[in-house]
Amino acid sequence: MHEIVIISGKGGAGKTSITGAFAQLAQGAVLCDLDVDAPDLHLLLDPKKESEHEFWSGNEAIIDPAKCEKCGLCFDMCRFNAIEETEDSFQVAPFRCEGCKVCVEFCPADAISFPKRHCGQWYISTTRFDTMVHAQLFPGEENSGRLVTLLKQEAKKIAEAKGFDLVLCDGAPGIGCPVISSLAGTDLALLVTEPTPSGIHDLKRVAELCDGFKIQVAVLINKWDVNPELSDNIEKYCQSKGYSVICRFPHDRAVTDAMVNRKVITEYDNGALKKTLETAWADTVSLLKSK
């Protein structure tokens, strides 16, 4: 069983458009959107939900104003500035509450309850390519590594049941909690970058993260022709680090046009773009097999 995670550090580098194309080319992979905060892969793959599940994680503190004796201990102890003073009581600002339970534990009046938190929904769906596992956190929720881990496990189970050898994951931007969770136990991180100062800066940070976890890295330079000189620099950097550059993909409005038509690039374009991505996918697979 293999798993590829497509990430980029910088948002908007083209992760999802590339994942969509690879979803078509893979033929026999479970697809998984690990960007549970602002997922977009479903916009290309038009999933039909087969099952829907609630995602519960952590708890939140709620002060009962009738029981609150206004001692202010919770206000003093909360490290997250989540307790606000109202006219006749204290209350918890849900978006600031970390769910640490300190106020609940120490409230002398037992005025604080601590219910579980329903943070989002997750789904198993069918698409025109293959099964897809995806989720949506509710706004403002902790961008949960636990949900990312859960999706990966579910995707793997389905792949095993179907006799597939591959799970293909679209990841989140950044280098924090959800990205770290998405990298756990993965076989190959495909980093999508672009020849801009932000693209390179963010590529280096996310690549260093992968190195820290000893995960094999491959790089795809998107919109390479916007700045060929910087693209050469990226390639030199990758060589020096031992990362394979599997593809230079051009800046082409067809990528947006495909998206508007709810198609992946390889469905929308039958020419050079498709060929470039077919080669990139073949190279990705051979990297995976050479491990």
């Binding site: 905060d37 978006f95 956190l137 706004p139 961008n143």
Partner: peptide, 14 residues
């Protein structure tokens, strides 16, 4: 601000 609509993004705009 950071991208997204979860905890870090909300923390940036609140």
């Amino acid at each position: 601000a950071p991208p997204g609509v979860s905890c870090p993004a909300v923390s940036a705009v609140i």
